[in-house]
Structure formats: C-alpha cells, structure tokens
Design a protein around this nucleic acid. Structure first.
Length: 604
RNA sequence: GGCCCCAUCGUCUAGCCCGGUCUAGGACACCAGGUUCUCAUCCUGGGAACAGGGGUUCGAAUCCCCUUGGGGUCACCA
C-alpha cells in the first residue's frame, strides 16, 4: 500500500518512470505550435522546458508546425514563431530550417519530416483508412450545425453532452456502407470508435490520472475538409517522428486520454507494430496577476478601457478619434462594441493615446526592450525551480540557458499554476542589463534601436562611435545601465543626447529656481563654472566630477547641489539627468560649453 | 453541470516524496532608514504565508480523509 502511494506521488517514482519506451535510445521531445499568431509567452516556456529536458537527457529537440486549421494558419506566423524561438536562444535539432545571421537552425534533422502537418495529409489518410477498415473508426454524416443544436439542448439541461455512437456502428466491425457513402463524396467526418475501458495516464508531473470507461465519446479524427484533427495528427506524428516525451501545458491533460485511446487503436502500417505511448508531463498554467488567462485579447481590453476613458470627454468623438489614429470609423465602432478584439486596432489606439499595451507574446517583450536571457531566466522559474542555493544561502534564481540545459529535471516541475509577475520580470531584466559589459550594452541597445525608425540615427551613431573606440560610448553605457530596466528606458534616460546644442527650451520652473532666483546667483555661478571648464582638457567623467568638486571648494559652497542643478538644466533643459560628470563627458567639451552658452544667452 | 488537476508570504517559490533540525528560508513587490549633485543604482532593516476541519502519530507545512477555494476540459481550434 505504502509503496503504491509513493509510486503515485513521489518524485523518486516519477524519476524512475522517465523512460517507459526505448530506454536505450535517446529521448526526443518536441514543441508543436500552431501557426495562428505570434509565439505566446506560455508557449515559449513550454518550448524552453522541452528543449531543456532534451538537452539535459542528451536527447533531441524537435519543432513541428501544427497547421491543420486551414482557416487560421499562415506561413508568416510559422516563420515568426521560429524567429522568436531563435531569438530566445531555443534552437531545435529537427524541424523546419531557419537561417538567422548566416546560421541555419534545424538542419541536422533526423529526416522524419515534413514538419508541417499540412504536408502530411496523405500519411494521415492512410492511417484513417486502416482504422476504418479495422472497424475502429467510422464515417459520420451529421452536420456541424445539427450537432450543435443537440449539444445546446443537452447543455441547457445541465447534462454532459456526448456524441452518441450510431446504432449501426460496432467497434471492431468495418462498416462498409458508411465508408462507401464517404468515398462517393458525401460530406462526412471520421470518428474514432472509442474503446470502452478505463484509461490511465501516467503523468510525469501529476502522477497517475485515471479516466473512467465511458467518459470518452467518439471524437472526430478527420474533419469534413479532409484534414486531421489535432488529436489525430499529434498521435500519428509523435509516433512516426519518434517522440518519447511530451511536455505540454496542463490544459492538454484532459485531451490526453483521447491520445492514449488513439495510440491503443492505431498500428504502424508496415511492418505492423503497435503505437507506443510517450511519457507525458503536464505543466502548470501561467496567468495574469488578476488570475485571468494571458491572451492577446488583453491588448484589446486595455486599449478599449483607455479609449472609453478618453472619450468620456464630450468634446471628443469616436469619429474624430478614428481619423486621428488612422482607423476606419466603422471598424473602431465595432472594436468599441467588443465585436472584435483586433490587435491592429488596439495598437493604433494605444499609439494615439500613447499608452502601453500589456506584453503577451515574445515579440511584445522584444519590442519593449527585454533581453532574451532575462525572459528565459524568468519563465524558467515559472513552474520550475532548480532547488539550489547560492553560496550565501539564498535561493539560486539567476541562471542562463546553459545552466538550465544541464540542471533541468522533470521532477522539479511544480504542479501549481503561476501568475506572471511583470514587476519581477522587469527586475530580472534590469539585473541583466546591469550585468552587461559597457560595450555589450551599447551593441545590444543599438541593435534594438536600429529596427525602430526614430531611433535608427542614434543607433548608427553609436555603432560607429563604438567601432572607432570613442570613450564616450563607455561613459554613456555606465550612465544608462543603472537607469534602464529595459532597453526602452535607456532612450528615455538619455533624451538629452538628442537635444541640439542650440536648443533654447528650458524647464521654466527649474530656470527660475536654479538660475534666476537670488538675483541670478545661479546664472553667475554657471558662467564662472563654464570658464573653469574651458581650461580643462582631460574631458573624462572622473576629471569632470573632480572639477565640479574643486569648484565647490574654491567657491566655498556648502555642497555641489546648486552648481549641479544649474549645469544640469543648461545641458538637458530639465532637472533630471545621469551624473553630471557622465553627462558632460558624453556631450563632449564643445557640446557642453555650447549648451551652457545657449542657456546663458537665452535666460539673459 | 460532468470529468480531471491544484492548494506555503501580495507574487514566484524553498521545505513535502524519506514527519522532529521550520519561532517556515529566499527573491520580486511594498514600507522605513542610509549613501548620493537630480533621477536612478547601491546598502541596511521591517511587515508579510503553511485555506479550514477532522484523523494517523509522542510529534504534521510535511501522511490520509472531508470541506472550501482556484484552475483546466467537455468543438469538424490547437
């Protein structure tokens, strides 16, 4: 008894169960996205864990594109997903090839492709036919609408709807009448004649999950359009592609009995061998902080809320706003009425209102200036934990992909759903930025800016300066790193860099307070300081900071505050900037003096 | 509603499998101090959790049961 209990729940027992299939051959995991949009952050975690498990076990990691939904799948989406994975550093051994920076990912394929399911339809059909001929599947002719109707009635009566097997169908007996009708072109689907037995899913994370006989109904395995359903394609492909371990989100747990039932019903064609059941591991789900599902609809929701608040002002109209953000008025109306959750409209609204939409997909995080290693580290901690301590006794929670690749273990996957805490991600990102070398920081920041039209000029300037070994890039990096939780923040922290030396706009309150008050004491100080600077030739932050201190000393000021704020407003027009030494260093001697000159002239 | 899964600070979690070392540890967030030319960074400190109830046991966060709560799933989507 006790032994059984520990077998069910214990981590040791779970570990023992790791290789139920060919224990000698290397394991194979796969990530199988459907190309209907961008890579979701949750999908990224699934991919990471599958990748890590394969790496830790010395196995192979495969990508398969599940594009059996003709209406929603697209090649652009598939490509985007592969690019996002590559950007994160999750590289696959088998799967579609992708060229990134001259490097080809997925090339060392085992040749179990094609890796796009839409190209495997003939294969699925062969298995469908075999199933039908063996009486394990059958053609069904009810229309979707007809079934929908029935389902509605049953659900309204608070009963569980199950498809009822037609009276003329018996599992194990080939129904040739139905098959002939189907072959003659009558619209139909193919359903599995589900076995009436208990199904036990041995889950690596959750333990055994038992499903009573009769819980499974005769689900569809081939749709009317001739494409297999997800369930069918997954099972056939996992077998044919040699997948040994399936790690996926817990939302699939309830599907697993179907997959097991399918595996028991299918046989490989020639030579005929039974399908195997891979080891399953279902991972906890990721939610928003408020407990709702993380979904691209969140973007529409956020945009809509901001839009409604904006339009509360009676002087503003939806039509005018639509024109302002370049969206057709009728489309915007539909969006407001929640008739659609268009991401495009949400983004247009966000731009017009200059609000930020929640990041949901990997691409969102990338655009907002997150580093892939920060994302990897953070999602690696969602539902998994290495369980190690740092030398000073803290939990080890900062690690990279190499660490995950060697330390990942399925026993340490948690069972509890997690909430996605953006604040903590931000903190991780800040840590990563701070840890970058000065040169690496500039390089990556410039690369990020290069893709953004407004930032591209600065990106070019930085890249050039870096190549020329100009010291100010180092000073800039040092000034910006502690002020940047994201790469986007870096641009905000150095707004003064884009300012022209002859720009005459200065924060009025600041000018009054620092420069003009007390009969222009600050202004006089600033002029005097500028004359000191003119004599200075070593224009490094350290030397400049020393110059400020010397000036304070010489003048007998009680601290650097007064002169610093004068210089700051002259250089940046504002009351906020990085340290003065760094700011002046980055601006250069000519720029610094020119700006002070402009300021003095402007305020008179 | 049926079936299934889950349950430690606000959040991510360590501890649970092999009960005592747990007056439950860390991180993020928050609060309070400190360093500082502004803004940040940084440093120090603080509050903050075993959902509830029954068992088992000398002893339970750890094992069992129930309740409650949360979640997933019930498509010709994946």
């Amino acid at each position: 008894m006790r032994g059984w209990v520990s077998l069910r729940k214990g981590r040791v027992a779970r570990a023992l169960r790791l290789s139920p299939m060919d224990s000698g051959s290397p394991i194979v995991t796969r990530f199988a996205p459907s190309p209907t949009g961008h890579l979701h952050i949750g999908g990224a975690r699934t991919a990471l864990f599958c990748w890590a498990f394969a790496r830790a076990q010395g196995g192979r990691f495969m990508i398969r594109i599940e594009d059996t939904d003709q209406a929603r799948s697209s090649d652009e989406s598939a490509r985007g997903i592969l690019e996002d994975l590559a950007w994160l550093g999750i590289e696959w051994d088998d799967g579609p090839t992708l060229e990134v920076d001259g490097k080809i990912i997925g090339e060392g394929s085992r040749e179990v492709g094609p890796y796009f399911q839409a190209r495997r339809v003939a294969l699925y059909n062969a298995y469908i036919e075999d199933l039908v001929k063996r009486g394990v599947a059958y053609a069904a002719f009810e229309s979707a609408a007809e079934l929908d109707e029935k389902r509605k009635i049953v659900v309204a009566a608070k009963k569980t709807y199950r498809y009822e097997r037609p009276a003329d169908v018996t599992r194990g007996v080939f129904n040739s009448d139905r098959w002939e009708r189907a072959c003659k072109g009558e619209p139909h689907v193919v359903r599995l004649a589900a076995p009436a037995e208990e199904i036990v899913v041995r889950d690596l994370v959750l333990g055994d999950v038992r499903i009573a006989p009769g819980e499974l109904d005769d689900f569809v395995i081939r749709k009317a359009d001739g494409f297999p359903t997800y369930h069918f394609a997954v099972v056939v492909d996992d077998e044919l592609m040699g997948v040994t371990h399936v790690l996926r989100a817990q939302e699939h747990l309830a599907n697993t009995p179907r997959h097991v039932a399918l595996q028991r019903s299918l046989e490989r064609l020639n030579p005929r061998t039974p399908f195997r059941t891979p080891a399953y591991g279902h991972m906890p789900l990721i939610f928003n902080m408020d407990g709702t599902k993380m979904s691209k609809r969140d973007k529409a929701k956020a945009a809509r809320a901001a839009l409604e608040a904006h339009l509360k002002d009676p002087s503003r109209t939806g039509e005018a706003f639509a024109a302002a953000c370049g969206v057709e008025a009728s489309h915007l109306e539909a969006f407001r009425a929640k008739e659609n959750d268009s991401v495009e409209i949400a983004e247009a609204v966000a731009r017009a209102l200059s609000i930020e939409l929640p990041e949901i997909e990997v691409a969102d995080f990338r655009e907002n200036g997150y580093l892939p290693e920060a994302i990897i580290n953070f999602i690696g901690l969602l539902g998994w934990n290495p369980g190690l301590k740092t030398p000073d006794g803290r939990d080890l929670e900062h690690f990279d992909m190499a660490f995950i690749a060697t330390n990942f273990s399925v026993e340490r996957i948690g069972r509890t759903n997690a909430k996605f805490d953006r604040k903590k991600l931000l903190s991780f990102n800040a840590d990563r930025i701070a840890a970058l070398s000065d040169e690496e920081f500039i390089r990556r920041w410039a690369a990020w800016m290069a893709t953004r039209p407004d930032d591209a000029p600065l990106a070019r300037r930085l890249t050039e300066a870096l190549a020329n070994g100009e010291a100010w890039t180092t000073w800039l990096a040092q000034a910006l790193k502690p002020r940047s939780r994201t790469l986007r923040d870096a641009g905000r922290a150095c707004a003064f860099l884009r300012r022209r030396d002859d720009d005459t706009t200065f924060d009025a309150a600041q000018v009054e307070k620092c420069l003009l008050a007390d009969n222009g004491a600050g202004r006089d100080l600033l002029g005097a300081f500028a004359r000191e600077l003119e004599a200075l030739n070593d224009w490094s932050p350290a030397r400049l900071t020393a110059a400020v201190e010397a000036f304070v000393q010489a003048r007998g000021l009680k601290g650097p505050g007064p002169i610093a704020s004068c210089v700051r407003v002259a250089l940046t027009g504002s009351s906020v900037s990085p340290g003065l030494g760094e700011t002046m260093g980055v601006l250069g001697k000519a720029g610094t003096l020119a700006r002070i000159e402009t300021c003095l002239r402007t305020i008179g």
